[in-house]
């Protein structure tokens, strides 16, 4: 025979999906939020995002080439995504050198030290963010006020995030609705993104658009976002109903801080989330409860990143103890 036939076990066709496609899908879904960040934070947002992405790719390349001496896989989009998420998780006025260090920690410690994509336990972007938050608390918590379409390099006026304002105010014995009205924060601003906060988390609208895109493309499943946000809503709602003065209302919790960014884009990170639907729901519920606990009773005003990282650690055990329901597991009595 002139040409040799290929022999392989079935199936002989495969879906038109690949790791880069999944990664770039998430990146596309993050684009609306990216544009919103440029709209409100101008050139600073662009610079931080660019620095984070470039340094993530560079560190991954260097580590793979010189430390691990393995195949270079920077084109699979995972490093770009990590960079983008790091940028989305920092304030718009963060010095670029901190962004570079954060990227190094995210890629080097968060990802490559575990063996690269697929082997890491914790979400790399969040490892980077938490590292920066703990190491550079001042820079990481000075939030520039949003200035619409201002591309100048002048130092921005800093403000605080709604969550920080509320936390501070409650500590001083003020009441929740007084703080909100005093600060002049409206829910519509929170929804659109006209408020202080990390680059990517400000606009609930943009994040929701991306989330719908991800769900439609079947890149993520509904389990984690719905369970995280649902739990946050219910749990904060219960607290709010017990005392409307010292606890923020549930809508406020969902619209501020990293709730949506975390629930839709970071908790759903494939590598660090459980693989079974049941596990994903428990994972989401855990994140929701921990977030509200940290926000309401903890020292930090925001708790999504800590909550996700803590629940990441439970993923292996969730995978072991939450099995999907097998087909034919329960014998169905066939009597008509």
């Amino acid at each position: 025979m002139s040409t040799q036939l290929t022999i392989s076990p079935s199936p002989h066709i495969s879906a038109d999906s690949s790791i880069p496609k999944l990664m770039y899908g998430v990146i596309i879904a993050l684009m609306p939020a990216f544009f919103v960040s440029i709209y409100f934070y101008g050139i600073g947002a662009l610079l931080i995002t660019f620095t984070a992405i470039v340094s993530c790719i560079l560190f991954e390349f260097l580590i793979q080439k010189y430390l691990l001496k393995s195949k270079i896989s920077i084109s699979d989009g995972s490093a770009i995504l990590t960079g983008l998420l790091i940028a989305f998780n920092v304030p718009g006025s963060l010095p670029l050198w901190i962004v570079v260090i954060g990227s190094l920690v995210a890629i080097g410690i968060g990802k490559m030290s575990f063996g690269g994509l697929g082997s890491n336990i914790f979400n790399p972007a969040l490892v980077g963010r938490v590292f920066m938050l703990i190491s550079f608390p001042v820079q990481m918590t000075s939030w520039p006020k949003p200035r619409i379409l201002d591309f100048s390099f002048t130092d921005a006026i800093t403000g605080a995030t709604p969550l920080a304002l509320v936390k501070e105010g409650l500590k001083n014995g003020e009441q929740f609705h007084d703080i909100i009205s005093k600060a002049g924060i409206s829910y519509s601003d929170m929804f659109i993104g006209n408020l202080g906060g990390s680059l990517g988390e400000i606009s609930a609208l943009a994040l929701l658009i991306g989330g719908i895109y991800l769900l439609m493309k079947k890149i993520i499943s509904w389990h984690i976002p719905v369970s995280v946000l649902g739990t946050m809503f219910v749990f904060s709602g219960i607290l709010w109903l017990t005392n409307k003065n010292i606890y923020a209302d549930p809508v406020f919790h969902l619209l501020t801080g990293g709730a949506l960014l975390g629930a839709i884009y970071m908790a759903t990170d494939m590598v660090t989330s459980p693989m079974t639907p049941k596990g994903q729901i428990i994972f989401g519920v855990g994140i929701g409860i921990l977030t509200i606990l940290i926000r309401a009773f903890g020292a930090y005003p925001e708790g999504v990143s800590f909550a996700i990282l803590i629940m990441n650690a439970f993923v292996p055990i969730l995978n072991i103890y939450t099995k999907p329901k097998r087909f034919g597991e329960i014998k169905i009595q066939s009597k008509e």
Binding site: L5, T6, S8, I13, S14, S17, S18, I19, L22, D76, G116, L117, G118, S119, S221, M270, V271, T272, S273, P274, M275, T276, P277, N319, K323, P324, K325, R326, F327, G328, E329
Partner: peptide, 28 residues
């Protein structure tokens, strides 16, 4: 179309779990 694509590391996306008609965990 005769060839398989190169095998890459598992990213634990759980797509195999969600498509399995028997409710198994193929990756596992």
């Amino acid at each position: 179309k005769a060839h398989r694509k190169e095998t890459k590391p598992c990213i634990r996306c759980a797509k195999c779990v969600s498509v399995c008609p028997m409710g198994l965990e193929p990756f596992l």
